[in-house]
Design a protein around this nucleic acid. Structure first.
Lengths: 192, 192
DNA sequence: ATTATCTTTGTTAGTGTTCACTAACGTGGT
DNA sequence: ACCACGTTAGTGAACACTAACAAAGATAAT
């Protein structure tokens, strides 16, 4: 789908955004970091907007494995644990993602982009919602708590954890803290 | 502290950011919305950066009452409920806040701004942390759960709720959903 | 095998537009 | 006379993007 040069452009675009925000993402900066001229960029992407679309597609591809792993487990609580830890593992391996992925507001100027980003997020949310729901039906998860609240707590705390990790300069171990959080959530929502 | 004109500028700046993102915040747009010329802005703020600093200060002032109300209650769970609902009440009354306040990444280009924003957030987090901690000491809150996890779940789910509300075009009632979330969290963390 | 042609990927130089901001000046109230 | 608060006109810098040209490798006809 993406040529080597296109991948390189996307990766550098992510790095530039992660480094100094979306305002740092200029065609000039991308070209300079690669070591080619600005017009050469336009041999690989027809516009800057296309580069941003590719950034989002790149996230989607990289995050996919986290959703695949869930299928291996049958118990709801294990699926939830897997959901959290697999996502965090990928983000840990691609620290630049953290700075970009949860700042949807950055793309606010372009209707198309924010829609694509939302779709990507909603996909994850829907999957987690299904897991929680069936966990309650199978009496593995407390039924006296609104399932939407549980989903919001899981996703919300995960996102906050990633944001804090990213803001702190990655000062703590994301996967260790993620496991602590996941263990605590499991303890809270398990059916008694 | 702020003159009437300065307040007007700040409020319009927030509206512009909420509407189409930080890239929509230009001196030209601010001036046009007020109905004065661009150079007239510079009679009230020495630069665009000063306007952004004032935006953050404005948030801080407007959010303060949410932290005051907590003192009225003695029981930890009620304090947590109050923390959540009072914050949501203010955001509900100032819907533009929602779009701006949780997009710290927007200010990433200016070291000073992101620091100010972080300080503001950390202040709230610290207060909630203290409440949870003392709630555990008084045996009002489960002690088998890491207090940091509880704080992350509360703040994380709140922020996600606000983001979802804002992204959905304020399609649901923020305070109603907030009460549901707060009730569920209370049920989960209460000591047995 | 040599030559001609096309495609891919780069270059330099420059476009118009928008940005934050300034110089110089006007005017009405104290 | 002064000062707070406007105005019009214009600054250089940065932006995304384009026109025109160059060079190297693959393809294909001779």
């Amino acid at each position: 789908m993406f040529s080597e040069r296109q991948q390189q452009i996307v990766e550098i675009a992510i790095k530039l955004i992660a480094d100094k925000g979306i305002q740092n993402l200029t065609t000039k900066n991308i070209a300079f970091k690669i070591g080619i001229s600005e017009p050469a960029l336009y041999r690989h992407f027809s516009s800057k907007l296309e580069i941003l679309k590719a950034v989002i597609a790149y996230f989607q591809i990289k995050m996919q494995p986290a959703l695949e792993k869930l299928k291996e487990s049958l118990i709801s609580l294990n699926k939830i644990e897997s959901f959290m830890l697999e996502h965090l593992k990928i983000i840990n391996l691609n620290p630049d993602f953290a700075k970009v992925i949860f700042s949807e507001a950055n793309f606010q100027n372009e209707e198309n982009l924010i829609l694509k980003m939302n779709n990507m997020m909603n996909q994850s949310h829907k999957i987690l919602e299904t897991i929680v729901h069936s966990g309650q039906k199978k009496d593995e998860i407390r039924t006296d708590i609104n399932s939407l609240s549980i989903v919001r707590m899981i996703i919300g705390s995960m996102r906050l954890l990633v944001t804090q990790w990213s803001m702190s300069g990655m000062i703590f171990n994301l996967e260790t803290e993620g496991r602590q959080l996941s263990d605590d959530i499991k303890k809270l929502i398990v059916a008694k």
